[in-house]
Design a protein around this nucleic acid. Structure first.
Lengths: 233, 233
DNA sequence: CAGTGGTCTAGACCACAGG
DNA sequence: CTGTGGTCTAGACCACTGG
C-alpha cells in the first residue's frame, strides 16, 4: 500500500472519491492538505488542486482557505438537468416530432406575467400558444409571452413552422434565467389540447429568461401525463 | 481597443461569455485557438484553457481536439438542482421542521420495486412511510424501501425521530443514483396524509440509490400541492 | 500527418481567514 | 501572523482526430 502512481487529475479524483465512499475519510473529517496529498500521490500540487476542486464542485468536499478541506457532512446531491429544445428531446428518442401553432397575437398580459417580467402593466407582449407532438401524440403545451421590446425580430416571425422555443434560442441572446418545476392539474382547455382527462397531473416547467435586466420571455410548458424528467447523481 | 489585461481565468471567462452573448462569436462559429487567445489576452495558454473548459461545461462551447472550439448551435441549458435533505430545505426557509413516522415494517415489495432494485422477488425489504412537516403543515410524504442486505445497520434503526432520508445520507455510502421528477395525482391515502383534495397534482421525486451494483434504497417523495423546485440557469 | 485541446510540472506569488 | 487554498507562468509532452 505504498504510493501507487497517479498520472492525471481524474485518477486522483477517483482515489479521493474512493476514500470518501469507503469512509476512510468520514463526513466532517479534515483531509490532508494539498501539499501532503501531492507528496503521497507522487504528483504536483496543481494536479491535486484540480482534482479536489472537481470533487468540491459536486458538493462532497468543503474547501476553505486556511481551514483546509473537509468531507461534507450532508452531501447535497447536485443533479444536473439538461434542458434541451423540445424537438431535440423528441428526436433523440427516435420519435417523430410535430408542431402545431394554436394562437399568436399581441396581448396585454395578466398582472402576474407583466409583474414577473417587470414590463409596464399596459404594454402588449407577443403571446404564443403551441403544441408539441411526439409520434403524432400530444407531448407538451407551450404557453409563452415574448417581450418584443427586447426581442424585436420576433414580432415579424410567424411561428407556424418553427416553435418559439427553438427560434428564440437561435436568435435571441440571454444572460441568465430562472427555472421552476412543479405539478399542475389540467384545466379544461389543457385537457382538450393534450387529449387527457380533466384534472390530470401535469409536469410543468416555468422559465423566465433575462438579457441583462430586461425580461426576454416567460414560458410555461405543460407536459402530457406520465412525463418524467430524469438524470443521474 | 487593444488588449485590456486579463488577470485570472474568471475574467477571461467573462470576456468569452460577453463575446458569445454579444454575438461577436455566433452559434456555430469556430473561435480562435487557445494559443491565439492567450496571445491576445496577454496571459498563459493554461489560463485560457481553464476558462474555456469552464464555459464548455455549461454547454455554450463545444471543444474537440484538432477540430477546435465552436460556439454551440443550441445551447442546452444545464440546470443544476441542489437536492438537499428535506429538514435542511425547510429550516433554510426559517420554518419549523416536523417529522412523523407513519409505518415501518419488513415487507416483500411489489414487483416494480424489486425489479428496479434488482433484488430477489421474494426477499423482504424495510418499508418506511413518513411525513415531513413545515410549520406543522404537511410538506412531503416519503415512501421508501431499504435494502437491509446492503444497509444492514438500518434494520436496527427505529426511524421514529430521525427520517430515513437523513439517516441514510449520514450512515450509508453510495456511489451513484438516478433521479426522476414527475407529476402525480393524489390517491385517497395521499390526500388524507397530506391533507389535500383527492386528485391534487403532486410534484414527485423518485430516487434510486446504488452502491456499486447493489441497490441501497428506492424512495418516492410526494410534495404537498403547490410545491416548486427552483433553480437558475 | 499535423494541429488542436488536455494535462503535468516546478516554482512562484497572492488572497483569505483562523488562531 | 501564518497556513491554507487559488491561481499564474513557461515549457513540455501527450492524445486524439480531422483532413
Amino acid at each position: 500500500m505504498n504510493t501507487p502512481t497517479f498520472r492525471n487529475w481524474q485518477s486522483v479524483q477517483s482515489e479521493v472519491l474512493r476514500r470518501i465512499h469507503a469512509r476512510e475519510w468520514k463526513p466532517g473529517d479534515l483531509i490532508p492538505n494539498e501539499a501532503a496529498l501531492a507528496l503521497e500521490f507522487g504528483c504536483a500540487r496543481t494536479t491535486v488542486n484540480r482534482a479536489l476542486q472537481a470533487v468540491a464542485e459536486t458538493g462532497l468536499l468543503d474547501r476553505r482557505r486556511k481551514a483546509g478541506t473537509r468531507v461534507a457532512q450532508q452531501p447535497v446531491a447536485k443533479a444536473t438537468l439538461d434542458i434541451a429544445v423540445i424537438r431535440a428531446e423528441i428526436e433523440e428518442r427516435a420519435q417523430k416530432y410535430g408542431y402545431q401553432l394554436i394562437a399568436r397575437q399581441m396581448d396585454v398580459p395578466p398582472a402576474a406575467i407583466s409583474g414577473a417580467m417587470r414590463t409596464s402593466a399596459t404594454v402588449q407582449l407577443l403571446h404564443i400558444r403551441a403544441l408539441h407532438l411526439a409520434d403524432d401524440a400530444p407531448y407538451a403545451l407551450e404557453n409563452r409571452w415574448i417581450n418584443t421590446g427586447v426581442a424585436t425580430a420576433a414580432a415579424k416571425v410567424a411561428f407556424d413552422t418553427i416553435s418559439a422555443n427553438e427560434w428564440l434560442l437561435q436568435h435571441v441572446p440571454y444572460t441568465h434565467g430562472e427555472i421552476a418545476f412543479s405539478a399542475n392539474c389540467a384545466t379544461k382547455m389543457d385537457s382538450e389540447v393534450l387529449n387527457c382527462p380533466l384534472g390530470s397531473a401535469l409536469f410543468t416547467i416555468d422559465r423566465l429568461t433575462w438579457d441583462k435586466d430586461a425580461a426576454v420571455t416567460k414560458v410555461r410548458i405543460l407536459f402530457a401525463p406520465g412525463h418524467q424528467l430524469r438524470t443521474g447523481i
